[in-house]
Amino acid sequence: MKSRSLWSDAWIRLQKNKLATGSLFLVGFILFSCFLLRWVLPHDPNDADISMKYLPVGVDGHLLGTDQLGRDLLARMLDGGQISLLVALLATTLTVVVGVIYGSVAGYVGGRVQSVMMRVVDGLLALPFLVIVILMREMISGWIEVMGGFLVDQWGWNSDLVLRFSNIIPLIFAIAAFGWLTMGRIVCTQAANLAKMEYVEAARSLGLGYWVILFRHIVPNLMGTVIIYATLTIPSFILYEATLSFIGMGIEPPNASWGMLIKDGANLIETQPALLFFPALLFSLTLFGFNFLGDGLRDALDPKSAKD
């Protein structure tokens, strides 16, 4: 009989979980719509026509109607989703890189180094989230502005493009600056457990170096935990981005994001409930998808914790 790897085993278990497979398709479809389908839509998300405002669903080719400036709601939702998802995915990538390096070093070295490194994490977690994210964003914005100015002046980059990104990049770094802490802590616990395993001891007695053991034997075995937690980090970062945009500290016009669309909708809820309903629905479906997928991955990759 052919033996199966941990990953193909997990894949089979995941396929048996209907909720998780459904979520996988949902997430895939939303990513496909926001990043590919958006470019073939007939309407431009920033095409404002005040005489066409508040069109109801399905009129004049506007599938979900139009907003207060006559812009196509569906196009804006997908365009906003692109930015919301981009922010969440890139911030999660940063979180994984920083969290895995920090956590695995702390957990593998152990002893006093580990407890000092984890106290630092505990300390940073005692900071109020909004204060630190807004401070970081402000600080990084300053640097990015200088860099953007240089790119436009010296290298002749398109200033609109630079402006678009000089709003998004500080937000990504600010969210990741606070977000890697939990990842670091989870990885550290796991790495500390792995460091005590016999196979690590065997590797050590074979005379392998510190870094080789860390990156060849410990980090690959952490990947299950990391993937589970990264999948659950994405929806929480989408939520952070939306919260920050909602309070005016995140994405700024002309960029759109789900947080901004929901904010606009919430202001018009009494007269135009559809403007809140559709963006909020897409937003919540995305979070549902990622969360159920993460739960399913946990059950598939770590059957002991599934408890059934």
């Binding site: 919260t243 909602f246 904010k263 919430a266 809820i269 809140l276």
Partner: peptide, 11 residues
Amino acid sequence: ICLPSFVVGPL
């Protein structure tokens, strides 16, 4: 977890 307070509140 998925319905943020800025949706629940206005509703």
